[in-house]
Amino acid sequence: MRCLAVLVVALALAVGFSVPASANVWENQLDSTTDGDTATLTGSQERQGSDGTESRSAGNDARGQQSASAWTPPPGIPPWVVPVERCVAQGDVAADCSAARPGAHTAPPPADAAPGTPGITIRDVASFRPELATLTSEPSGWAVRGLDANILATGGSSVRTGELFGTVAEVRFTPVAYLFDYGDGSAPLSTSTPGATWEALGLDEFDPTPTSHVYTASGTYTITLLVDYAAEYRVGGSGPFTAIPGTLAIPSPPIEIVVADSAATALVDRDCVSNPRGPGC
């Protein structure tokens, strides 16, 4: 195994092949590969440490060249080129499930599909971005330590039109699960409800709701939301939608919330006249 590893690099050096400029985890998660953005391996792969001398490895030469290049999004990047499928059954967030559940997300062709129409998978429709759910908090942007802050998601189903296997198709996304992370180190809340405002629930401010959260320490917290979307599709602009197995887990833009020690602190620039429903009023 060791010889093979060396051989791979030695052959690469011998033919002077190029590797992508990106070299670390950061760059390779994006991959800034472009035609003019490669570094050529040169130099010796041998390393000698026992006598205190070492020659630089080929990889270091490559890295030295690439470190000067700044990443810019290449033109034409599809908006969603690497869909993230969520393993709901396993509880994994944003994990690739294709290996864990081989074939599980391959849908049969719809009954009315034209001959030769391939089965549609969740990955096929991932380029149709659903309308993102929006995180909001009540009271807006702040909370009081020890009292419930109502965190909720808004945004329902959305239909997107685009091309699927050369045919115009509509894809309908419906949020089916929500993962609220309140940013304070507590366990994220996984729920099928997006939550609702206190008013819609017929509750008073700071009452508990299915998606509310009590912060135990003051400070500023970043709340994140991951929404699982189910997808359906149809072609031809009419007829029923056909469900596609699997879900897409897509994060919503995070929000920040400031948690104050007391109602008096939270309402430092307000009073019970201007905000009669504020805490403590």
């Binding site: 590969t33 080129v81 690497v82 993102l132 833009p253």
Partner: peptide, 11 residues
């Protein structure tokens, strides 16, 4: 904006 910025030909 929640949009992917991954290169299409990322290895």
């Amino acid at each position: 904006a929640g949009e992917s910025v991954v290169s299409a030909d990322r290895p």
